[in-house]
Design a protein around this nucleic acid. Sequence first.
DNA 1: GGTGTGACGCAGG
DNA 2: CCCTGCGCCACAC
Length: 116
Amino acid sequence: MTGRRPDLAEPRRRREADDYASRVLDVVDAIPEGNVMSYGDVAELLGEGGPRQVGRVMALWGGGVAWWRVVHADGSLLAGHEQAALARYAAENTPLRQPAAGGPPRIDMRRARLGS
DNA sequence: GGTGTGACGCAGG
DNA sequence: CCCTGCGCCACAC
């Protein structure tokens, strides 16, 4: 049919985006204390989108969930929120890897990564 | 409709 | 350990 009704088609796509975001946040919310997942892990478990999509969702709406349980694949912490994240890790006893000297601490992915 | 950008990830050097 | 390039995809301009 030629009547596309853009006034209805547009909002539908918007709803799908929110739905995807809601799924991402749901997965993050399901990560147990003391464990973490990488952006790629979340995307893979979700079976949809990619690490960057997950990252964007977290950037926009991650404030309402345990955002510190989503880290980079190499275990490095979220830039700009290292202190807040570190406090959380200490509180829930998340396994960290201490650097030899002065360097930035990272998650011990082998032990903290969920699923392996 | 091309271009740049990003709370990513991986391979190379 | 550092930096660079490329793939990836949604979004802003």
